[in-house]
Design a protein around this nucleic acid. Sequence first.
DNA 1: TTAATTGTATATTGTATATGTACAATAGGC
DNA 2: GCCTATTGTACATATACAATATACAATTAA
Lengths: 134, 134
Amino acid sequence: MRHSRTLRIDLASGQPVYEQIVSGLRALLVSGEFESGEQLPTVRQLAIDLGIHHNTVAEAYRVLAEEGWLDLRRRRGAVVLDRRGPKATPEAKQDFRKRLEELIAKAITNGVPRSVVAAHMAELAKKLGNGGKA
Amino acid sequence: MRHSRTLRIDLASGQPVYEQIVSGLRALLVSGEFESGEQLPTVRQLAIDLGIHHNTVAEAYRVLAEEGWLDLRRRRGAVVLDRRGPKATPEAKQDFRKRLEELIAKAITNGVPRSVVAAHMAELAKKLGNGGKA
DNA sequence: TTAATTGTATATTGTATATGTACAATAGGC
DNA sequence: GCCTATTGTACATATACAATATACAATTAA
């Protein structure tokens, strides 16, 4: 249950809570924070930790299960999967590029200096080049 | 009115249409596509181009005006501003970093290879280093 | 001054989020 | 094998937000 502490939910952010959970957990999964086969908290436990309703957590788990990240079963909870074969989406590259540019634009609008934006980008790009683990 | 053609609205994307307009225009503004003082299409004209209601465009223009990108007045339309002094936000850097990691995680989930993600990141980082113009 | 053009305000309708509540399935104790 | 607790699921509902329809206000130009 250590991992639930790394999730921070902002009820006032405007972004749906279940999406925040999905995004947060997915980022941790991609970065290799979880072992394959590892148990995630039950929907009720994580809901208590975050101060929300368990159905909201369940919705998030369902999305991640559909994406192939989790094996989700009654009475068994959520188990992290290997996810060897993600189905490659064709327009996903263009979509990523567009959203990346939009994210940069928003950061600059919020006053983040271009140099800081560039630094983060370069750092994460390098990390991805190393296999995404380091 | 040339620029409205560069905006693409996807009614089925789940993302609110007015937000799509805000994000798209903001990305163009940041990348220097517009001259200061340039006229944007009227809310009604852009609404026709995009096939939506003019109030939806108006909402998007209002957001950009609040951010300081546009001067918006009745009978005068929307004019692009210089936007010299964006108010610097303190937690904006952390927010950008988090959203960047989440965006990467989503792309990888969608099947985009890590190498492709890294390439886009590196390219845009370099562009930002050059002053964001090239 | 008048009329047309442009952004704005308000009400309405559809959709989605988060919750309350009840149910279904299954692992473990007996 | 049966019971019970635990876990995810299904469904209805309150609420909020998004997009629209419609009417209004302001301002420019003739």
